[in-house]
């Protein structure tokens, strides 16, 4: 993978950085229905980009297009270009599973694998990726759990079921699982909507820590959350187009600007609570 970013830091330990995603004229469909129309935006490396907007505006759909999870839904497809460090993930010869190993994902509801232990929940992605050596696995599992700020809480229950953890811990376990395979981008689909405020705060802290190594894209319904953690914010709206409701990107700018001096009247109406 090409490390084209000039921002690679000199520290030997933190050599890993996130990737850039350039989205160009992306349309996403569910069957014949156009759900997201003509999105063009650049996700900057080692930043947190928040996607906000009312329900049904296509922000989650767009997120799922960024690691080709959208097409895993029956009848769903996407058209357009998404460049991951310059490489089109929608090119003919690109395998979706390889894209997903470089662009990881965390879901709305924590999804620990039920029949597996805490340790196995993280090791499974590594094993299936071809890492068999026990000591290497141990190292990566511990490192990932430390990165996800979960190690101290679970180091004595690595062999217990992932379901024995609290909701917030489960979500951090899922983050640890996602970053264990060292993706370049981490997609988070409303990762805190099922969590209480304390657990939410911990995840937000974690995200700010993780953006040193990963590019993070987060979909959230919570505007305060977007304001707290993100560097840039994309605002999506449901618009009428050819007599049909379609999600569109109406404004994309640094987060401070979105929340203080929005350029688009729809953004202003949304963040002041008049629509959505």
């Amino acid at each position: 993978m090409a490390m084209t970013e000039a921002s690679v830091s000199a520290q030997p330990e933190a050599a890993k950085t996130g990737s850039q995603l350039e989205i160009k004229n992306l349309n996403a469909y569910y069957g014949p229905k156009l759900a997201v129309r003509d999105v063009t935006m650049t996700i900057h490396p080692n930043e947190i980009t928040a996607l906000i907007g009312p329900s049904g505006c296509g922000k989650s759909t767009l997120l799922r297009c960024l690691n080709r999870m959208h097409e895993a839904i029956l009848g769903a497809r996407a058209e357009g270009t998404v460049l991951l460090d310059g490489e089109d993930i929608y090119a003919q010869d690109i395998d979706a599973t390889l894209v997903r190993r470089r662009v990881g994902m965390v879901f709305q509801l924590p999804t620990p694998l039920r029949t597996r232990s805490v340790y196995e929940n993280i090791a499974i992605g590594l094993r299936l990726g071809g890492i068999k050596n026990k000591r290497t696995l141990d190292e990566i599992v511990e490192r990932s759990l430390r990165q996800a700020a979960l190690w101290d809480e679970v180091k004595d229950k690595l062999q217990q079921s992932g379901l024995a953890l609290s909701g917030g811990q489960q979500q951090r376990l899922c983050i640890a699982r996602a970053i264990a395979i060292e993706p370049d981008v981490l997609l988070m689909d409303e990762p805190c909507s099922a969590l209480d405020p304390v657990a939410t705060f911990r995840i937000e802290e974690l995200m700010i820590e993780l953006k040193k190594q990963f590019t993070i894209v987060i979909v959230t319904h919570n505007m305060q959350q977007a304001a707290r953690v993100s560097d840039r914010t994309g605002v999506f709206m449901v618009e009428r187009h050819d007599e049909k409701s379609v999600g569109e990107l109406v404004e994309y700018a640094p987060t401070g600007q979105i929340f203080t001096t929005p350029q688009d009247h729809r953004t202003e109406e949304y963040i002041t609570g008049r629509v959505g």
């Binding site: 690691n67 999870m69 895993a72 599973t97 390889l98 894209v99 997903r100 190993r101 470089r102 990881g104 994902m105 879901f107 509801l109 999804t111 694998l113 039920r114 499974i124 992605g125 299936l128 990726g129 899922c174 699982r177 996602a178 395979i181």
Partner: peptide, 20 residues
């Protein structure tokens, strides 16, 4: 969600079915 969790790890579908 269990299938999606596995597939999102870059696991091919047949492997996800077999192992998860």
């Amino acid at each position: 969600t269990v299938r999606e969790a596995a597939v999102a790890l870059g696991v091919p579908q047949w492997k996800a079915i077999l192992t998860v």
